[in-house]
């Protein structure tokens, strides 16, 4: 369990993220993921992110682990009821997956199947509780398990939430329910993150700073308008705008590395969300001195 060991040893942990394909062609993802080897402690595999139908997180997590990478299996509450969620946690365990990131999930109407029936039988706190119960050898209703799983449980938090206190209340509940580490929503503002960490560090649970690679000024503006609690400051938007298209990856790497350097000492790790720009992750880590 490299990710847990990284935190335990006091090392600054690094995770990145891949999104399973829409379809069965998995080889490009697996080839691109090779770049993470030796550079990150684990790789998140998203679970139908943005409510778009695609290949699931579980088989991709498994395939990554088969190739020597450690996976963080993301599980949302949107598409499965408590029977299916608990079953998938057992499925993950038997495939050797230990890191599980428990999320509520985006709402169905935001994705490509807005007609789908949303589930949300459990919420993220209750999903964490269920995972802990399974670890303790019983299911949600107290039935004994024949062999129990072992997990390293993660959760998410949004440092940019306004007001912040409800987020902190929920973060504390997630810890009480079983969360052992956190990955944050994308942060572009060190002052905002400092304010958040001043409260969050009291909980004594490792927090990984979320970094989404800025690809263009348009993307930044889109996130500011549409992604809850994400705020890209004007100076970063201006920097992206002034950069010629072919130089944007380089600029993006520079900005990400700078953000990591500014906030590194406030937290226990970084979670890089490259949104397809996976190949630039090593350059960011190099520039950030990781």
């Amino acid at each position: 369990m490299k990710l847990k060991e990284a935190f335990d040893s006091g090392k600054f942990a690094v995770t990145s993220e891949v999104a399973p394909p829409k379809g069965t062609d998995i080889s490009p993802l697996l080839e691109e993921a090779e770049i993470f080897k030796g550079r990150v402690d684990a790789v998140n595999v998203t679970d139908l992110q943005s409510s778009v139908m695609r290949m699931g997180s579980l088989p991709v997590s498994h395939l990554l682990q088969d190739r020597g990478l450690e996976a963080v299996f993301q599980v949302t509450c949107r598409d499965r009821n408590r029977l299916a969620l608990q079953s998938d946690l057992l499925n993950a365990a038997v495939l050797g997956i230990e890191n599980v990131l428990c999320l509520t999930g985006d709402y169905t109407t935001l994705g490509d199947h807005p007609q789908a029936k949303p589930v949300f039988d459990l919420d993220s706190v209750q999903l964490l509780q269920a995972a802990v119960k399974l670890q303790n050898g019983e299911d949600m209703v107290g039935e004994k398990l024949q062999g129990s799983p072992k997990f390293f449980l993660g959760a998410v938090v949004n440092p940019g939430a306004d007001p912040l206190e409800p987020q902190l209340i929920k973060m504390e509940k997630k810890i009480k329910a079983g969360a052992q580490f956190f990955q944050t929503q994308a942060v572009y503002d060190a002052k905002l993150f400092e304010k958040f960490m001043k409260e969050a560090e009291k909980f004594g649970v490792p927090v990984m700073l979320g970094i989404v690679l800025l690809k263009s000024a348009g993307m930044a503006k889109y996130m500011n308008a549409n992604v809850a609690g994400v705020f890209v400051p004007d100076n970063l938007i201006a920097e992206m705008k002034e950069t010629a298209k072919e130089d944007r990856p380089k600029k993006s790497v520079e900005i990400a590395a700078q953000l990591i350097k500014e906030m590194k000492d406030m937290c226990q790790g970084v979670h890089l969300m490259p949104l397809g720009w996976d190949k630039h992750v090593p350059a960011i880590l190099d520039a950030a001195g990781l």
Partner: peptide, 15 residues
Amino acid sequence: CTKGLLNGPCGGSSK
């Protein structure tokens, strides 16, 4: 709450 959550806001709550 659109998702019917019982333990507080999701990450999609903003202002």
